[in-house]
Design a binder for these strands. Sequence first.
RNA 1: UGGGGGAUCGUUCAAUGGCAGGACGGUUGGCUCUGGACCAAUUGAUCGGGGUUCGAAUCCCUGUCCCCCAGCCA
Length: 559
Amino acid sequence: MSTDFIREIITEDNRNNRFGGKVHTRFPPEPNGYLHIGHAKAICINFEIAEEYGGLCNLRFDDSNPVAEKQEYIDAIKEDIRWLGFDWGDREFYASDYFNQLYEWAIKLIEDNKAYVDDLNAEQIRQYRGTLTEPGENSPFRDRSIEDNIDLFERMRKGEFPDGSSVLRAKIDMSHPNMNMRDPVMYRILHQVHHRQGDKWCIYPTYDWVHGQSDSIEGITHSLCSLEFEDHRPLYDWFLDQLGIYHSQQTEFARLNLNYIITSTRKIKKMVEGRYVNGWDDPRLPTLAGLRRRGYSPEVIRQFARDIGIAKTSSVIDIAKLEHYLREDLNRRAKRAMAVLRPLKLIIDNYPDDQVEEIDAINNPEDPNAGTRKVPFSKILYIEQDDFREDPPPKYYRLAPNREIRLRYAYFIKCTNIKKDEAGNISEIHCIYDPQTRGGDAPDGRKVKATIHWVSSKHAISAEIRLYDRLFTKPDPENVPEDKSFIDFINPYSLAIITDAELEPSLAEARVGEYLQFERLGYFCIDKDSGSEKLIFNRTVTLRDTWAKIEKKQQNATA
RNA sequence: UGGGGGAUCGUUCAAUGGCAGGACGGUUGGCUCUGGACCAAUUGAUCGGGGUUCGAAUCCCUGUCCCCCAGCCA
């Protein structure tokens, strides 16, 4: 049993009594959108590590940019973290709660001649910053007197200047090889109402100025973040050193990437606002709200996050891995039922016209405690169009003319005839059944190669079924040619709606939050749009389908 | 090309000087009243070149490739 490098570092710190054996982490989302599966990894790491070491994990909203942030997102983020099963107790913090303290610390830096007010505009600052290979130049305002800086900064705070007219900058080194050290901006003027602070402030601290001090204030021991902040660490340390306050230890790990999906809040927001998807909880989205609505359990996400591990290598996990955990979880918990998505009428010619039988069906073969249920059976049934072929290809085991197969839990039937409409489409299948095979076994021991699901037409309830496919046609939609956008790679067939599926009657009782399997088809759940006048199901994921694989291979062979 | 990181089966994570291993995927077979699940087998990797060592994925040298940084986003 090996452990990841972060746990090794923490274990080592504890062995050296570095933080007095204390482990205190934090998850610091910006409330600028909904949480997605990428965040889930960070949430799991921070909360689970804290718990393992007998420590705590804070929830801290990094709300230093009122332009992007909203209360709606705060509420959604809290709901999603709770759904995952984590509890931050009373430690719900906001970086904005530290604005006063940060302001005082900024004054201190000015007084120590470590910060200055710069009147250069954004464009000029960029030019003065130099490039990756050339050093920057000092701003002409860099050597203002401490008194002037204090006065100017105070007037910035009072709102005497318009947005963008000046900033407070740390005075470090304009020729530093690390770009983050070239006099980074600490405050910008933003005449914006803050969702928590109201109009108290018109200057807002930048993330770089907020982050390390927030960790310090909260007494965070291990500040775990993603790779791109690696070269911000020297800056955070610089601030903490100048201020002479407590340092937490930042450690960076690779964020989660998955193929065929996007884990960029900015881009997800663009899809939501551009109506390419139906809201933040669209089941095609990798948001936690979307996955929940799609039918994922929190355990799937937790188990997945645990098993993918933690490393410093930027990597892209195959979406098949997530789906593996999904199916594994759902297989254990999903209640089985029969549903026909694309109905084809099947008539058992030798079955008594008005007879109805109640057939026993197992609710979950993986869970004996789940019990059984009765499913009504009668002369006229619906079967899946896919389960009949007039001219079956090799390896096709299902129903075909003159072939005998089993109706799940019911009887063996043999196809004797078919009817077609004017267009030549098969409209009816006629069969005869063997009454001796009730329950699904033949007394003479004969076998069939296939078992198909069915629904009694007279008893069926109809429903809308939403079938989802991957949202993007490209495995790496974030990586597109210059003249393209990820929007160009949205899969036009990512949502297919079936309006007239026929289901066994027990499904009328299904409720939001239940995990279901429609036998031989996949896992499904009730959508929140569902109501008494119209049942709506989402397909969470299909079952593994070896026939589809064989069929595809055959098609490729002929093509 | 300045700075910071990284490179192990197709993918991903491990092996911390001592038999390169797991998971996912793929393939093959078994079992099955879900072509599901389950079971078994199999496939398959240390970025290149030098060196140290009885022994190197691991240490040293050298080269190559990849990711991040030039927001008043986080």
